[in-house]
Every structure is written in C-alpha cells, then in structure tokens.
Simulated scan of single mutants.
Amino acid sequence: MLKLSDMYEQAATLTVPIVAAVRDDQLADPTPCTEFTVRDLLGHLFAVVTEFEKSARGEPMDFGGTHDWLTGEWRTDFATRVDALRHAWMAEDAMSHPSTMLPREVAAQLPPFDLTIHGWDLARALDVPLVVPAELTEAVAALSETLAPMRGGSGMFAEAVPVPADASDFDRLLGSLGRDPEWSRTAR
C-alpha cells in the first residue's frame, strides 16, 4: 500500500499543474461535479487544502462562510498551499492531534483523495489528459471503501454510475463515486 507521503506527492503532482493550467475564461465551465463550475470546484479544493492543513496542526477546521480564493496569483497560491498541507501532515506530531469526525489516519488521507478525484474533475472540464498511477488509484479506492458506510444519505457522493465490465480500476473508482468516466465538456 502507498505510504501517506507518497499519496500526497502523487496527488499533488497530478493536480497542481491542472490548477495552474486553468484559464480565466474557463472558470464558468461545467465539471463532472454537476453542482460545481470550474470556479466552484477550485474554491472547494482551496478550502480542502487550507482547512486540512489546519487540522494537521491540531487546529479546528471551518468550512463555513464564503471566500473568493481566485484573486491575485491564485494558481501559485494553490501550489504553495498544497506544499504547506503536505508538510503539515508529514510533521511528527500531525497524527497525535485529536480528531473529532474521523480517525486521524483516515482524515490524513482525505486531502490526497480530494486532490486526485477533483484533479480528474478539473482535467475533464479542461479537456486535458490525466493518468492516475495504479498505486494512487489503489490507495484512493481503499479510502473510498473505508468511507462507504458514511456515504449513505450524506450527500458526500452522487449515486454510483455503471461502468463497463472491462473498465480500468480508476474508471471503476470514478463510477463508484458517481462520476461518468466518459464525461466530456464538449458533450454538454
């Protein structure tokens, strides 16, 4: 199984360049997350990265309120925040802080989970290729299975989408999370 530090490294390597590639004229475009435009999805990723960095340091998270993350040099800011998040979770004391919602080991994996899945969402919205390494797919799928009992009615994920029997492991994961692996912005 992939080590936590490698999960962060691989998820960041996938998603940071995609965020950096978003053009301002694409911010209103749809994404595979039907409730999110590209702007909304970027805002969600900024919030995840920022709030889970706080959690790694033992501070309370606050997903409430609104914040316009896409100001100034936001692409560079995102990369900086992802790096800070990785360092915060790799700190010696990160796992020793109390956790209120989930076991600490599970909470620590949520940011790379979001970076990977929403990295795919952004890649699809921008119509750019994304290849998720097998090890990262396996780690994200394992976390998805851990979270499965909490999904029911939580609104965390959409209903599962059927995928072909010969679908890749990542496409099967996407389907289980309510995403159509064949989603295309040009078909919208």
Rank of each mutant, 00 (worst) to 15 (best):
L2R: 13
L4M: 12
D6S: 04
E9V: 01
T13P: 01
V16S: 04
P17E: 01
I18C: 04
V19L: 11
A20P: 10
V22M: 10
R23Q: 12
R23E: 11
D24Y: 06
D25T: 14
A28H: 08
D29P: 07
D29A: 07
T31G: 00
T34V: 04
T34K: 11
T34I: 03
T34W: 13
E35F: 03
T37S: 08
T37F: 02
L41W: 14
L42C: 07
G43F: 03
H44S: 01
H44A: 00
A47M: 05
V49R: 12
V49C: 05
V49I: 11
F52G: 00
F52V: 00
F52E: 00
F52H: 00
K54W: 05
P60E: 15
G65S: 00
D68K: 14
W69E: 15
W69F: 07
R75N: 10
F78D: 14
A79F: 08
A79R: 11
A79E: 09
D83K: 10
D83F: 01
D83G: 03
L85E: 14
A91M: 09
E92P: 13
D93K: 11
M95G: 11
M95T: 12
P98R: 12
T100A: 04
P103R: 15
E105Q: 07
V106K: 13
P111N: 08
D114C: 02
L115S: 02
T116H: 01
I117L: 03
H118P: 01
G119K: 13
G119L: 09
L122C: 01
P129Q: 08
P129V: 06
L130D: 05
V131T: 15
P133Y: 14
T137V: 12
T137D: 03
E138C: 00
A142P: 00
L143Y: 12
L143S: 08
M150Y: 15
R151V: 06
G152C: 02
A158D: 09
P162Q: 06
A165I: 11
D169T: 15
D171P: 03
L174N: 00
L177D: 12
P181I: 13
E182H: 12
S184P: 04
T186S: 09
A187L: 07
